[in-house]
Design a protein around this nucleic acid. Structure first.
Lengths: 198, 198
DNA sequence: GTCTATACTGGGATAGAC
DNA sequence: GTCTATCCCAGTATAGAC
């Protein structure tokens, strides 16, 4: 009996997951304000009006997309944790960014562009949530710098992530993926130049 | 006769200028998609429906806001031109950014956030126009680096403007103006470290 | 040349059928 | 638990009064 109910439940969460994944992708490509629930439903292959069974409001879908980005970040840092040297982890992170250059040139950083859009809101509902995801990335990077014994690890993290956001924004605005390549190389040699205080 | 017609014409363009200035300000604060024509009209103290006498569509108001930013940029570089040393001009530019830190922390870089939002559009109408303004800033900066006899002036310009966009985005997402101060200081010492190739 | 009243559309949200 | 039909509002744009 409980088992017979399991399948519908499974399908329900399956659709919910499809909607979440679609939201993350479509909101990144089109932005929050220009994306309709119909767009997301279509991308998830779910009937339009049905969306409200899984998400009460559009904002909840945005929130789900943010969790998706956050989970993706966890996955990435989890993989990087296998590298013994923190500096190598940071370098691998930068290489990941450069590998994504075509996407960045077309749509920007998923979290960064979301942060820009949500910060324009007057209502205090979601306007800091994207910032919170960026904050987690900053904290992770600061941890790596700390492990390296560098002073002011938090500031170094800001410099690194700021570099990523800046190059993504410019690559996007100018539609030029090579900006990611060149600035990525610069960040790599910057990393190499950092030495612990004597 | 031609003189008697001058006053209404002057008033007309006066309102047009008020609308343009209001558009630049409100679009920066609220973003394009969340700003209604009524918002801009109210900020410009012009009757709502009247807007269409001066601007045929909302997109034209966005375009006007972009010209405003572009003009503001010209004004700024014009002032900086009075400094004899290109390096001092670049430093003064960075100091201007840091002085604007409270605004940046609240609303981001006017042109950068506009670029992010417009790039989300599928229609090829305005999606590159903000990028064009950023391009002009890049070109100006590259000119300064070239005057200094530095190699790869275009890449240095990208690094500088990317730094500005990155620190503005992070300051905005985290609502922390001090990020502008710290990253600004870093950019200043980076500038000082640059030497012409021997 | 200036402004008002209103038409029209897109899209978020809901009630309720199956 | 799934989906359809529909309501309703916000907001752009226009027609036309003054």
């Amino acid at each position: 009996m409980t088992d017979s109910a399991a399948k519908p439940r499974a399908r329900a969460s399956e659709k919910r997951r499809r909607l979440t994944a679609a939201a993350a992708r479509v909101l990144h490509e089109q932005g929050v304000e220009r994306t309709t629930l119909a767009d997301i439903a279509r991308a998830a292959d779910v009937p339009v009006g049905n969306v409200y069974y899984y998400f009460k409001t559009k904002d909840e879908l945005v929130r789900a997309a943010l969790s998706e980005h956050s989970a993706h970040l966890d996955e990435l840092t989890g993989e990087l944790a296998r590298l013994p040297d923190p500096r190598d982890r940071l370098k691998a992170l930068i290489n990941t960014w450069v590998d994504q250059r075509e996407t960045a040139a077309r749509h920007g950083c998923p979290t960064g562009t979301l942060a820009v859009e949500l910060d324009k809101r007057a209502d205090g509902t979601l306007d800091m949530e994207a910032g919170a995801v960026l904050r987690r990335l900053l904290d992770w990077a600061a941890g790596q710098f700390r492990e390296l014994g560098l002073s002011a690890p938090d500031d170094l993290a800001v410099t690194l992530i700021s570099g990523y956001q800046g190059m993504s924004l410019l690559a996007n605005a100018l539609r030029d993926p090579e900006i990611m390549t060149r600035e990525g190389a610069r960040l790599l040699s910057w990393l190499d130049s950092l030495e612990p205080a004597a």
